[in-house]
Design a protein around this nucleic acid. Structure first.
Length: 780
DNA sequence: CCGGAACGCC
């Protein structure tokens, strides 16, 4: 905006002829003040106008000074009730000043003017002094609509505002445009919406729907409830749009998905009718793009913002950084951040969360810049520390959170719980939880999921059952607790079924997260039929659910179902992730479908969005090894990025034993010894291989080596679930079970039956996982 | 002269 030049002629003639000067002739503070000071005894220029000018120019302190000056000089005849009202406006809710002016109003008698009382009320409301404000209202001689509106907008919350509106209604005071505008602003949540609709009816009745302020509020009312069509209708039908109307309509589209283009279209229209978009319309449009994940449109608004001179506005930059960060264009985030003039907490927090590698130094820089962090800053920082496994830094930030008091914030303490869970420090995680005062389901979820991830399945379950009665679990609670049950061999499936019944009772069985976790749990615990049942009943099948069911079929060696489901998944348009591919490869491996497996593996490499992980390689090695393609397996292992994984080498070693390749097995064992020298499995496998091929002296050497280096064979453990809540645990040589004798007898009979069946099928009929032969004597 | 509206990032 170009500052208007002072119309000196007008001012001079006004001063000369003792005429009041219009506000618009006073173009700047400086001139206003000069003219004002120069006028003899300030007579020629209304004090009121001068004070207003100062307020208008965001300089209320000067207005107050002008007022005080008058009093000090003893020119009280220049002051009227309007002067006092203006002075009160200049208080900006400062209680001390307000009280002083109140005193003056009483002594001078101006307090009886409704205008003055209204202004006083406004000051007290702004200062949070509801008692004084309402006292004035109740003692008014003749309250007008402005008084009522002042109370409406000063109301503590929507409830008291609605209550007051009701009182107005009872007393027969009709709402005006201002009342409606204010009341509508209290109706923006779902609860207030019905009342908002009633207000809309009244507005139409009074014919106030064309008032810009009212129409703007109506646009917001409807767009907040996702009723964009209604909002748009009001927008299209209103006679005049102002900047707020455009801003409200454009950002209305951010509450609805798939609206980036609508929002941009409005922005273009706005430009074409001669409006310069402000930060509200720009942030609204960018956030619509962000929601749609439409980076290209976001970039175009970025360009537009720069062109119209809003490219450095803090909130515009913040939201641009956020969309670039969401789309992982970190270089762009850095660039915007670098060129910003006023970085606020949000700018810094966005940067800290976006640039995980630099988050700690960014945090320090922020402090140097004098910006104080908030809870979200710490959350971003803790996230990056957690993902980078920086244990020491994590502790330091934890200390910082405690010192600054942010650790008592629920969201921060949850992050701390998650962080310590990730660091495998569950004592710390649970002690933070214990210190948390306001526990909510999210905190419990963080704790349960921490226990689940650290293999402390029973603890996870205990926490779950302890909160069940007092808190309403949400989908994430079940996600964690079901994954714990799924992973725990030593927890009875009955516990899982108990959870399932809770889920049904809570009506969460149709939730995509819950049903995915549920079928995953059943699948991992061997109940493939139950798993399939849950899957078929799930209407919204998530990627997780598809992957879980494909993995389940793969684990059960059901290649056909796994492949059929995989194809169906792709047909449904659900993108497979790396775990899905792992499951499909496993299915191929179990069935010996080497060509199909190879083809899928190559397709992962071709599709550059997924990087084959060590697990994929080890799966391939296992598949090739089982099929006897030992050389190809070894070659693939050599090609895999990084050093070969333990499981891949073990698979290959198993394959070597299966196919009697002693020479390669020796190479593999050497590699295994380098990675994990104390792993008893490698020794045992190798010694068995030597034994099978008659290298007895080497067998003895290995056994000796094991004894010398202190490698102990792990004792096998297993659990039997008889459908009760607890399990029966067994280890080899253990006779403590009360029914041991019976069990051993049954196991022996089973062993004999298996042996008979195997002899009928031929010797190499079946191999269990890991290359071990199904052994006729069962360890009980 | 006193009372009113939109947006929002982490």
């Amino acid at each position: 905006m170009i500052a208007r030049r002072p119309n000196i002629k007008v001012i001079v003639s006004a001063v000369a002829y003792h005429r009041p000067i219009s506000i618009k002739d006073l173009p700047s503070n400086k001139h206003a003040h000069q003219v004002f000071d120069q006028s003899p005894r300030y007579k020629f220029l209304s004090i009121n106008r001068c004070m207003l000018k100062h307020i208008h120019n965001n300089w209320p302190g000067r207005a107050i000074n002008v007022f005080k000056q008058q009093l000090q000089l003893g020119f009280s005849e220049n002051i009227d009730e309007v002067t006092i009202a203006i002075a009160l406006k200049a208080c900006n809710g400062e209680l001390g000043l307000g009280l002083q002016l109140h005193g003056f109003a009483i002594t001078s008698g101006y307090v009886s003017f409704t205008t003055v009382s209204n202004a006083l009320m406004s000051v007290y409301f702004k200062a949070g002094d509801f008692g004084r404000a309402l006292y004035i209202f109740e003692n008014l001689n003749c309250p007008d609509i402005v008084s009522c509106n002042t109370v409406l907008s000063g109301s503590k919350n929507s409830e008291s505002a609605f209550f007051f509106a009701l009182e107005m209604n009872v007393k027969g005071i009709q709402f005006d445009a201002v009342s409606f505008t204010k009341l509508l602003s209290y109706c923006l949540d779902l609860e207030g919406f019905l009342f908002g609709l009633q207000l809309h009816c009244l507005i139409l009745k009074y014919g106030l729907d064309c008032e810009v302020f009212v129409a703007n509020s109506l646009i917001t009312l409807y767009s907040r409830q996702g009723l964009l069509i209604h909002a748009r209708k009001i927008f299209d039908e209103m006679p005049i749009h102002d900047l707020v109307s455009w801003g409200a309509m454009i950002s209305g589209y951010t509450h609805e998905g798939n609206c980036a283009t609508d929002s941009i279209q409005l922005l273009v229209e706005m430009l074409s009718v001669g409006f310069r978009p402000d930060h509200v319309s720009l942030t609204g449009a960018v956030s619509a793009c962000s929601q749609d994940g439409n980076l290209e449109l976001g970039r175009q608004i970025h360009g537009l913002s720069m062109k119209i001179g809003q490219g450095k506005h803090t909130s515009v930059c913040n939201i641009l950084m956020s969309i670039y960060s969401k789309m992982e264009e970190i270089a762009d985030v850095r660039l915007i951040f670098k060129h910003m003039n006023d970085r606020n907490v949000i700018s810094w927090t966005t940067m800290i969360s976006a640039d995980k590698g630099e988050s700690i130094s960014l945090f320090n820089e922020m402090r140097w810049d004098g910006i104080y962090p908030n809870d979200v800053t710490f959350i971003g920082l803790l996230h990056s520390i957690t993902s980078r496994n920086l244990i020491l830094e994590g502790r330091a930030v934890h200390g910082h959170c405690v010192r600054t008091g942010f650790s008592s914030k629920l969201n921060v303490s949850n992050c701390l719980i998650t962080m310590y869970s990730k660091f495998n420090e569950m004592e710390n995680a649970s002690s933070i939880f214990e210190e948390t005062t306001s526990r909510e389901i999210v905190s419990w979820n963080a704790l349960i999921s921490g226990y689940a991830q650290n293999g402390m399945h029973q603890e996870a379950l205990d926490v779950y059952f302890s909160i069940m009665e007092f808190y309403q679990p949400n989908p994430y609670t079940f996600g964690s607790v079901l994954s714990a049950i799924g992973a725990a061999e030593n927890i009875s499936l009955r516990q899982g079924q108990r959870c399932h019944s809770h889920i049904i009772r809570l009506g969460l069985d149709s939730d995509p997260i819950v049903s995915g976790s549920l079928l995953d749990m059943y699948a991992k615990r061997g109940s493939i039929l139950e798993s399939l049942r849950v899957f078929s009943q799930t209407s919204l099948k998530s990627q997780f659910a598809w992957t879980a069911i494909i993995s389940a079929c793969a684990r059960h060696g059901d290649y056909e179902s796994a492949m059929a489901l995989f194809n169906e998944m792709e047909k449904e348009g659900v993108k497979p992730d790396s775990i899905t591919y792992l499951a499909v490869l496993t299915a191929c491996g179990r069935k010996g479908m080497v060509d199909a497996g190879r083809e899928i593996f190559n397709s992962i490499i071709r599709d550059c969005s997924i990087e084959p992980s060590p697990e994929h390689y080890s799966c391939m090695v296992d598949m090739l090894g089982r099929a006897g393609k030992l050389d190809e397996a070894e070659e693939l292992l050599g090609r895999s990025p990084g050093s070969p994984s333990l499981s891949a080498l073990q698979s290959l070693l198993g394959a070597c034993r299966m196919h009697g390749n002693v020479e390669m097995a020796e190479r593999v064992v050497n590699a295994l010894m380098e990675i994990k020298p104390m792993e008893s499995g490698s020794y045992v496998l190798m010694s068995n291989l030597y034994a099978e091929n008659g290298h007895w002296e080497k067998v003895a050497k290995i056994r000796k080596g094991m004894r010398e280096s202190g490698v102990v064979k792990e004792i096998g453990f297993s659990w039997v679930d008889d459908g009760s809540l607890s399990l029966h645990g067994f280890s080899s040589g253990d006779m403590s079970h009360p029914q041991s004798e019976e069990i051993f007898c049954t196991a022996h009979c089973l062993g004999l039956e298996i042996q008979l069946l195997r002899e009928e099928e031929g010797k190499d009929g079946c191999h269990s996982q890991g290359g071990k032969r199904a052994c006729p004597s069962i360890n009980v």
